[in-house]
Design a protein around this nucleic acid. Structure first.
Lengths: 366, 366
DNA sequence: ACAGCCAGCTGAAACGTTTCAGCGCTGCCA
DNA sequence: TGGCAGCGCTGAAACGTTTCAGCTGGCTGT
């Protein structure tokens, strides 16, 4: 025998409406309708008669009611948030990318949780954990070198994950990459054609696949051009930062003049800025005595001591398209067609500025 | 007569555990305990016997269970997210600030939703609305010029709002500001003492209070130094960006040589970089023919064509302290003392580099 | 006149947690 | 030996939504 209360009072909160956090129930009470009707006004206004609708809207305004997303999400099963994990929030490449993501997400009514992994797998994992707890609709990530198990875990839970500036391992996931082999080749060809015979690649050969690709492109171009084994010097900086570039440059300057490269290709623009800064500080004239090519073409590349030649990536577009793919995957397609995983590869383009050209061939700055 | 079902089945989900989204109930079933016990393992592990605890933890691992933050928040009444709204995500000043915020928030187990208002009140309002719906624990904001009504609304709801890089209107709220009058004065004094008699202030006199303060500091310093009414020229750039700086510089160069300033104080470093870039492009030597002082001392200031003299603000520290104040306010104090609203004012400091000094007085670059 | 239908609304279940009253058991003390 | 405290656990309410079956009353068509 199940005991049944003879009368159930459904008003645990005081009749007095609490202005701090009015709920849909308070609105219903205030407007003299049921909670279901208030919900309809919010989500399917056309299903409610104009008179009632106005009454409810007046109550909403009077009480300052704002939907509780957590409750909404709990019931509806899907949240209105996406996550974005980048490698270095201080790198303008990623803020430009983030801007593109935010534009698309906001237009779709979604909030973006922007996380910074600083290239550390532990931080990345911690952020993924938080995003999982938040049950985000999807995650955009520029991952650390090893694709972590956490990413797969998230995907098996059914949360879409789109890789950004990184190739997918297989066809079962969306990814947006840039053809960095081409990028490296463009940079090297440019320097080799200008007559440089010894080139440095600053960025190392391991670590991030994006960097390895750039290195491979450089190697291929150099090999096509010369048989000299010493034509290419590789330096691995401490970090992909301005400071890392400065330190690499001073190492270059420590080489005996005969073996010292006359130009450097840097794995990103921050490194290039650091190299430039150190060269100028040591009295080395750029580009006359030393040419520099950067990568990413961040806005500061054009504003540098000597405007930097750089390999441009469509960072804003990368962000926008990534967000669009994520939303499409999260929605299961666009209504007509089911979602199909795409692996997009963008082509970079070389932007020639003064840092790699003799003054009389000076290019117009952007 | 209320109809009563003769038997209520409480198992709407299949007995088969769904690996996609195991709930606390699935874990309880798997471990042979009640949901309350699972919750205790998660939140008060010391209240559960070791044997049971291990059994539950094994079930959690086996099912890949991850807490649902929405449900947790709904019940507990407080979310584990804070919001940060900045004026320009592309400005490194704000990313450094964001980094400081994230450090503190992550250490406290909170996620940060980073929003970009782009200086537009409408975007700011939209972001505040989303953050309200998310029931964030608090909001850090560098607001657009007019403190919007939405901010007050949020505060009356009981959500802490801390103003960042902005003075509070009254003592009833936390705010962290920088003494920008002092900053403007430092910059102007530096140039005046170096012998400059005509100075430009690039940044306008209205708009953001931070900029107005910088302007006031400059005005005060100039007035202390000379009675010449024409000693100060004010330019209002289209935006606080590199492009805005370039455009302002070309306007300066359009002035008749006799009235043209010999130095500029820029309201931020992006403007200063733009001015520098345009000057160099037009063949004006910096600092010999034209001196430049920036503001914020972002990392790129030191890496510029001519390393920029700039007014340094403690951006990382600003972010950290802001987050700490917000957390303290959200927690209602530190346990011993109740929260007291604080209005912190940081002092900026002038970092002299080459852009404002003749070469032989060259300062060491950072 | 009556069946049938529809628009417009109500009321309750369900989402996944946390919290808390309460229950049974063990061991201690009087 | 009986009472009682405390440990470890259970079970259900509650958080604020959305969703959906179902109710009511007015209108239409025959």
């Amino acid at each position: 025998m199940i005991p049944v209360p003879d009368r159930v009072t459904v008003s645990p909160r005081p009749a007095e409406e609490d202005p701090l956090t009015a709920s849909i129930r308070d609105v219903a009470g205030h407007a003299g309708v049921s909670v279901g009707t208030v919900s309809n006004v919010l989500n399917r206004p056309e299903a409610v008669s104009p008179a009632t609708r106005e009454r409810v809207q007046a109550a909403i305004a009077a009480l300052g009611f704002v939907r509780n997303e957590s409750a909404r999400h709990l019931r509806a099963g899907r949240s209105r948030v996406i996550g974005l994990i980048v490698l270095d929030i201080a790198n303008p490449f990623f803020t430009d990318l983030a801007r593109g993501v935010e534009e698309v997400a906001n237009a779709a009514g979604l909030a973006v949780i922007l996380c910074n992994s600083d290239g550390q797998p532990a931080k990345e994992a911690a952020h993924l954990e938080v995003l999982t707890e938040q049950r985000v609709q999807g995650v955009l990530i520029t991952p650390t070198p090893e694709l972590s198990a956490e990413i797969d875990t998230l995907r098996t839970r059914g949360t879409p994950v789109v890789l950004v500036d990184r190739r997918a391992n297989g066809p079962d996931q969306c990814a947006l990459a840039v053809d960095d082999v081409l990028g490296g080749r463009l940079a090297a060809d440019h320097l080799l054609e200008a007559g440089h015979e010894r080139i440095a690649f600053i960025g190392g050969t391991g670590g991030l696949p994006q960097l390895r690709e750039r290195y491979e492109g450089v190697v291929a171009a150099v090999r096509d051009h010369t048989a000299d084994q010493d034509a290419l010097t590789v330096l691995t900086p401490a970090g992909l930062t301005v400071a890392g570039g400065r330190e690499a440059a001073s190492r270059l300057l420590g080489l005996p003049a005969g073996r010292r490269p006359t130009a450097a290709i840097c794995a990103n623009d921050l490194l290039a800025l650091g190299v430039l800064q150190e060269m100028v500080r040591q009295g080395v004239r750029v580009p006359e005595e030393f040419a520099i090519v950067g990568y990413d073409d961040i806005d500061y590349a054009a504003a540098a001591a000597v405007p930097l030649t750089s390999v441009r990536k469509p960072r804003h577009e990368l962000g926008r398209r990534a967000a669009e793919l994520l939303l499409d995957e999260a929605a299961g397609g666009d209504g007509e067609h089911p979602h199909v995983h795409q692996q997009l590869v963008f082509s970079p383009e070389l932007v020639v500025r003064e840092s790699s050209t003799v003054r009389h061939r000076r290019a117009a700055t952007t």
